[in-house]
Design a protein around this nucleic acid. Structure first.
Lengths: 337, 337
DNA sequence: TTTATTTACGAAACCGTTTTCGTATAATTC
DNA sequence: GAATTATACGAAAACGGTTTCGTAAATAAA
């Protein structure tokens, strides 16, 4: 109720506040005997130090901020899992913030971080983010920031990503090899760096295989599942020759399945489908979905490790390296054998 | 770099520290003219107050702790989404902790909360949790705790849950009506309150429909997907007459599909399946999975609202009410028409 | 005009740690 | 035995806000 403080421990043991503090932090200045007395009392009275007092004084919080577009998404959920595994191991706390793909929210959150609330930030940018002023401002204040998956190219910092270009290239080529001539590319954004890379992979794979890149085959959706669904249906109805789809986003896979079911287009006979996706249920969909599976857990874990390592250094200098953890193309029945 | 403080603002404007503080918090003690001068400078210099200094003095943190077993799970991901929506609205920060179903971790986390790190806690207990000493200790220190979904009955506090008993009853009855005679009940735990309720719903539905409850039809798994899979396969092989399965956990649905595919048991012809699940992909599984869908987002949102409301009160008295938000049985093709 | 009351602000204590620096005593060196 | 160096601890100043309380000036009431 009335919280237990170091001062009270000090009085109880007839020692000074500073001695208690040092004893608890196992300082060499304190004798073993005293340390033991202190620890026994701490144990007995169940003393837990006030983290805010400590943070205030030490100017750090042992907290990292995680900023992501959303959490109901296998990729981000798995990434959080990876982040948390490192945080727990290294004694960091994890504050979660969702931007819901809003640039404004992203700015507000990062602005708050300038307060020193977090020691460092892990983030995947929103779909709307084209500028990095808010990130630069934050980093200038000495708060290191590490990107994972969705990066902003113009910001110089560590970036943990997957091989988006190559994966999309491979996937597209796979579709081509299986006989597709008219392949749609579906995404939520033409802004996001990962989307552009995936798009380029798609384009170059087409060209390398003697196919034409057609703007009408490149579709951008809004993440409004009903509208997206209608939009896709319309597209599929109007261009009958479509025989392949590469979806850049997990959620669009569902939209595709819905639309195809509705239009009585059978997968993979009429249309072959590949999606970037971390769905655990991919192999039990009807038909099983060929996916590009991102190493989400690893990405989160690596990003957190990089950040924590930087936080361990005196000057928080973040390495500016880009770490690429490759995705894997998992072939299932939504593409032909 | 060297952080901006109220003291520096004060010097700049020739005002006192207390005046600045009050102006920022829009105190009635400060004239509009002064407030404006202060706000302009705050704006110009980009001042952001140090939350730890503030938390220390005010003895609150505007932070809630969320303790869940895992995050890679549609239910919990959606619940976090609900929680975050309220937190964002009310200006709270969200600290996330994963127990990975470990009672020890749960205790460690709650112990840490005794420090005052969070103003309140939202939690779903681990599968191993049978005792609530750590929760009581926390609540005794004045930190309100609200359960959602997975509660510990013995603890008196708000609980936001779904109608587990009724849902399982309904689901079981549905299977019986569709002709099932030998229905398995699958879960991860016989400890968890929700599991017991679901089990009771299952049992009573059987009895009410003139069927026998057989212990051998009640299976408990370990969340070790490989072993679970083998265990289930063995069971299905040995008891050929099994014609229905009710899975208490989303993850087990996948296990069931795997096992049935492997054993060439067709769903729903040979075996009908219903699972508690929030999978967005449920309707695109092969076959589409009949589910009991929990209102995860709503549960998270309601729990957060309750907590925040309690935090708004001077004494943090938490209402001891139990709020039940019903699940819905969504019939799909894994059960017969 | 005198007294009472607002109004607008400042001084200083306080929140609970950490850390620097000083010092008495004990141990060591010469 | 004197001088030096460890050892073990305490006093006090931070950290950056918030809050209480006091007060001078301005306004209202008498």
């Amino acid at each position: 109720m009335n919280k237990l403080t170091i001062k009270m421990l000090a009085k109880e043991l007839g020692l000074s506040v500073s001695t208690i503090s040092k004893a608890i932090r196992d300082s060499h200045e304190i004798s073993d005997k005293t340390k033991q007395r202190v620890n026994e009392l701490v144990e007995k009275l169940n003393y837990v130090p006030n983290p805010y007092a400590s943070s205030l004084r030490r100017r750090n919080s042992k907290t990292i901020g995680v900023v992501i577009p959303e959490v109901v998404d296998s990729f981000f959920a798995q990434a959080i899992n990876g982040i948390e595994s490192i945080a727990q191991e290294k004694g960091y706390h994890v504050l979660i913030y969702l931007t819901h793909e809003s640039f404004e929210k992203e700015k507000t959150i990062l602005k708050d971080f300038e307060s020193g609330r977090v020691d460092g930030v892990l983030m995947s940018v929103s779909r709307e983010t084209t500028q990095g002023g808010h990130m630069e401002a934050l980093m200038k204040k000495g708060v290191p920031l590490v990107f994972f998956d969705r990066v902003l190219d113009e910001i110089e910092t560590s970036k943990i990503i997957t091989n988006d270009y190559e994966s999309a290239y491979l996937a597209t080529e796979h579709l081509v090899k299986k006989g597709c001539k008219q392949i749609l590319f579906l995404s939520f954004s033409n802004i996001l760096s990962i989307s552009r890379k995936r798009l380029n992979g798609y384009k170059n794979a087409l060209l390398a295989n003697g196919l034409e890149v057609m703007e009408k085959n490149i579709l951008t959706f809004n993440n409004d599942s009903k509208r997206d669904y209608l939009l896709l249906k319309k597209k599929l109805r109007s261009s009958k020759r479509t025989d392949g789809i590469l979806a850049s986003v997990e959620k669009l896979a569902i939209t595709i399945y819905q639309a195809c079911e509705d239009l009585r287009l059978s997968i993979p006979e009429d249309i072959q489908v590949i999606s970037f996706s971390n769905l655990e249920t991919a192999s039990f969909l009807n038909p099983p979905l060929t996916t590009i599976a991102q190493p989400a857990f690893e990405i989160g874990k690596t990003a957190a490790s990089m950040l924590v390592k930087a936080l361990g250094r005196k000057k928080f200098e973040i390495q500016k390296e880009e770490i690429i953890i490759p995705s894997t193309l998992v072939m299932r029945k939504s593409t032909r054998v």
